[in-house]
Amino acid sequence: MILLFDLDGTLIDSTEAILESFHNSFKVYDFFAADDAKIKALIGHPLDVMYRALGVKEEMIWDFVATYKEHYRKISTQKTVLLPNAKEAVEAAATFASLGIVTTKTGKYSQVLMEHFGLMDKFEVLIGREHVQNPKPHAEPILKALQSFDTNKKEIWMIGDTQLDLLSAKNAGINSIGVLSGYDTKETLKKFTNMIFDDSLEAVLHLKSRKTSHY
Rank of each mutant, 00 (worst) to 15 (best):
K122H: 13
T95L: 13
V125L: 03
K136F: 09
G100N: 06
I101Q: 04
E124Q: 15
K108M: 13
I127M: 00
E91V: 13
P137D: 11
M120Q: 04
V112K: 04
K136N: 12
I127T: 00
A97N: 11
P137I: 02
E91Y: 01
Y109D: 12
E130T: 13
E124Y: 11
E130N: 08
G128L: 10
E115F: 09
T95C: 08
T104L: 12
N134T: 15
D121I: 01
V112M: 07
A139S: 13
L119C: 04
E115T: 15
A94D: 10
V125F: 08
M114A: 07
S110V: 10
G100I: 05
T95W: 03
A94W: 00
L99N: 11
P135L: 02
H116G: 13
P135H: 10
A92C: 14
K105L: 11
V125D: 05
P135G: 04
Q133D: 11
T103M: 06
A139I: 01
H116P: 13
G107N: 07
I101S: 09
A139F: 08
T95H: 05
A97G: 13
K122P: 06
Y109I: 14
V102N: 02
I101T: 10
E115N: 09
A94S: 15
P137A: 04
M114K: 04
K122S: 13
A97W: 07
P137Y: 07
A93C: 06
H131F: 08
A92R: 14
H116F: 10
V125R: 09
N134F: 15
K108D: 14
V90F: 01
A139W: 01
S98F: 02
E130W: 08
K105N: 10
V90E: 02
H138Q: 14
R129S: 08
G107V: 13
Y109N: 11
V112D: 06
A93M: 02
E91M: 11
S110C: 06
E130D: 14
K105Q: 03
A89S: 13
L99Q: 12
M120I: 15
V125G: 10
K105V: 14
F123Q: 02
I101E: 00
L119R: 03
L126F: 14
T106S: 12
F96Q: 01
V102A: 03
L119S: 05
A92N: 12
A92S: 15
G107H: 08
A92W: 02
A94C: 05
G107S: 09
M120G: 02
S98K: 12
L113R: 02
T104G: 06
T104V: 15
G100T: 04
E91T: 12
T106G: 10
S98Y: 00
H138W: 12
L119M: 00
P135R: 11
K108E: 14
D121E: 14
A93T: 10
S110A: 15
T103L: 11
L113D: 06
G128D: 07
E91K: 13
G118R: 00
S110Q: 01
P137S: 05
V90H: 02
F96A: 07
G118N: 04
F96P: 04
F96M: 06
A139H: 08
I101N: 06
Q111K: 15
K136W: 09
H131W: 03
